[in-house]
Design a protein around this nucleic acid. Sequence first.
DNA 1: ATGGCCAATATGATTGGA
Length: 263
Amino acid sequence: MRIATWNVNSVRQRMDNLQAWLTERQPDIVCLQEIKCVDEAFPREPLEALGYNVAVHGQKTFNGVALLSKLPFDEVKLGLHGGDGDVQARFLEALVSTKDGVVRVVSLYLPNGNPAPGNKYEYKLKWMDRLANFLRERLKLEEPLVLAGDFNVIPTPADARRPEAWVKDALFLPPTREKFRALLNLGLTDAIRAVSDASDLYTFWDYQAGAWAKDDGIRIDHLLLSPQAADRLTGAGIDRHVRGWDKPSDHVPVFVDLDIAGR
DNA sequence: ATGGCCAATATGATTGGA
């Protein structure tokens, strides 16, 4: 089974790229972020025509997450617990059944947090605490769980071409990295780091300042695996070539292969 | 020379992104 994540930066602007990439990479489950539309405006039909079931947690203008799955959804849950009055669409959880048992998948869009310090950074840190609380509960189930999305976290200096440029940024400040490590310390595996020690693995290149041409990237899109998923990890990769396509997102897809029956 | 973009919106300027 192949599970992927991609911050598409507007799904309606990215349909050509999305359809081309789905055909090329053939993922079984896809976590999308920053769809930037309400549920009714999500382009369901062309994706269903490619064989995907669709679950959407949208919002007008900003944020928005979705899940595509070749397997039907047994359960779908919108939103992250603990956000009293939080209306931002950033979290979508689903359970699917396979011949090898259930798989739980989360598509998440963790808050950016800039400028830091400030209200937005406080919201980011609280959101990360809520995510840790969610994980503590779900890990008790001892299921294969894939927590995938745009975490807006640069975990270590090796995950940026120019780490010095990010030292005062909400994506790289010590409290951000501490809370990301706290997630991993609950027992999760960073899939890309499990398969490679390379220092040039990036998933985002800014539209500005020729970042792509200079390979001035950062790794902020992650797939974190529960022990039951990590034990079945057979591969992982970043589709960086997609950043070179026409009308690209500023993020590229990241995927894992698990030794679990797919379709 | 340290800047250069992109998307959505009661839209031609502002907000958010990272």
